[in-house]
Design a protein around this nucleic acid. Sequence first.
RNA 1: GCGGGUGUAGCUCAGUGGUAGAGCAUCACGUUGCCAACGUGAUGGUCGUGGGUUCGAGUCCCAUCACCCGCUCCA
Length: 709
Amino acid sequence: MPANSLEQVRNLCMRRGFVFPGSAVYGGVASFWDYGPLGVELLNNIKKAWWQDTIYTRNDMEGLDAAVLMSRKVWQHSGHEATFSDPLVDNKKNGKRYRLDHLLSQQTEEVLRGLLRRLVQLLKMPPELFETITRERIVSDISSLLTSSTLEAQIATKVGIPGARLDQPLSTTFSANDRAELIRALARAVDELPTKAEKLALVLGLQDQIGWQPVDQEPSLRIAGILSVRVAKYLLAAAKVVDPSDGSVGEWTDPRSFNLMFKSHVGPVEAAVGTEEEAHARVYLRPETAQGIFMNFAHVQRAMARKVPFGVAQIGKAFRNEITPGNFIFRTREFEQMEIEFFIKPPQFVKEGEKNDQQWHEEWVEQRFKWWLRYATSPSATLEERDATASRFRARAQTPDELAHYAKATTDIEYLFPGSLGWGEIEGVANRTDFDLSAHSKEVPEEDLKRLKLEANHDSTEKLDYFDPDAKARYIPWVIEPSAGATRAMLTFLCEAYHDEVVTEPTKQQIDQIKSDAAMIRKNAEKKIKEAQKELAAGREAKHDPAKVEAFLKLLDETVARLPESLTEVLTALDHEGAQNLEPVKKFRPPTEKLVEDCTRTVLRLHPALAPVKLAVFPLKKNKPELVELAQAIKERFQRHFRVVYDDSAGIGRLYRRQDEIGTPFCITVDFESLEDGTVTVRERDSMEQERVKIDDLPGYLSERLQLS
RNA sequence: GCGGGUGUAGCUCAGUGGUAGAGCAUCACGUUGCCAACGUGAUGGUCGUGGGUUCGAGUCCCAUCACCCGCUCCA
């Protein structure tokens, strides 16, 4: 059985140095994780496997590593700036979608006023706030804040609303100097207020008090900017915001904020967002690596003299300011992608017997699916285990309304993660047609622009087309994009490899002890259930929920009946919510936990190519210098080729278990016999079987079994 | 975003307003012949952070941060 909860995997990762919370010293920052000594090995191995399998073993692929920061124009023409940067709302009634500010600008004055009033009420803004906070107070309150970047960065993060766009420049009635001071003081004042509502209220109040106004005086813009993305849904409903297309009150969704791109600046810019200077210097951290490949399509094609079809692969970091990150490293704001852009003939040039875009798409889905299964499986897996692994992967075609703006079709490869996460996307194979290359090209024919719903690109200096000597025609190629998450791959392989195994049968006496303890728990719990029922019947609050306790007892009976093989499940049963506040359970837990620990091992049955450590070498006794010396010599013999560790800090059994937990495929023990006949014990991870192998034969023995290419 | 929960030693956790604890881990010494051995000793804490109540707060109150679960949303 692989991991049955993400929590198990999380624990192992933090305890054994795979993943640590980011910025932990300062309390942590949501959604950022650091990869520890073993995590970086695993991640590197995943990337290496992918790189070798997608580039080295094919004849039609090249590699690339493009810059993270690219011209802002890339994101303007790719469509990301428009669709990633403004809150959008849907009307559930008719499926129409609007930019929030556009929608509001079409409302009547009455509706807008109602919105503002409700916002004020919702935030419980104390009216005094507007009276006490004056310009003098603010300006005089300047001191320790460091130089600020932009209002948005300062205020929006402090107020704590991701959707807030309080980024318009201050009224021009202030001098540049005054403005900078004001920003600092404002940020400071916001800092001092105890609640989020008051912070927001302050910002709102200041707009009126000190003439801090958006450049654009449209009230709709201001409100749209101020609305928290999360409260907007209720406000829109309460204020009866109307759908301009039919004039009826809409059934609005939460606005989905697509401002997923992190902003930064090139050069020493400290200008406020919205100014020309800022706009000029602005860059985004890439939200996908794909555009770097499109930028270099023509370079790679010419430099490597490639003919379509061919592909370009890239591994790199991407950044998205996700609104709801979570599930450990599944959805993070900084992540790593492994992307292929595979360039093919447009449909009209495909000849008889050649693959069209649909067939290429299918082939890539199949290829990638095989890749996932290959590395999700340990070579020692039985047929049944392989089937079980395969059943946790699936390819699922996206429905039309799920498709991204650039895709004709996308097939997601998903993995069934443990616990509440469930099926999760680990790779998307998209048919992006000629959308991207056309979007970045000048002089694209009118009909193609129309087909792709693109505007003519007057910024581009190039046409990203290709002369096909075979078709004797010039065209902009189509693209199939298999795009996988490297960090999600790590989570996938960890979940699939995780196993808790019972390796030592508990004695009959120990099992009887558990059974009698369970009987005691039942006796006590039944009493509690009766008490609770009495309380509830009398209309009072009960300490226990009878139904939950009942469910717990049923689970406990069921697992205890299946001992000893259900040993680990008994422990899980004790964590059932119905077991809370039951005294005997508290007493019962520690000895059971101890027994489970003594009788089980945690093992990561990782594919050897992915294992962070390939080999561990131990001396049987650490106080015999000859053994230590030989063991270290063996370690040194392999350390140039792969990660190998030497350890003598515990008894031999414990050393084995430690390596099991991190998925080390082989352990070597050097004993006294080794000194005489030059053989060592090689112990295999999954079977725990041992074999005597000559030290001189180790290279061949290991390279065959580690499957390193 | 809403609701619920958690946060005490590196890890797992106990601690009912009155001197901060246990097991494991770590380190030292001794012992130890292949699957989580043992003995002795030692190290390790501003109890997530900031305020408040109190003679006194890990414990009560407020705020805040992080993580987990459920709902909502999203890819």
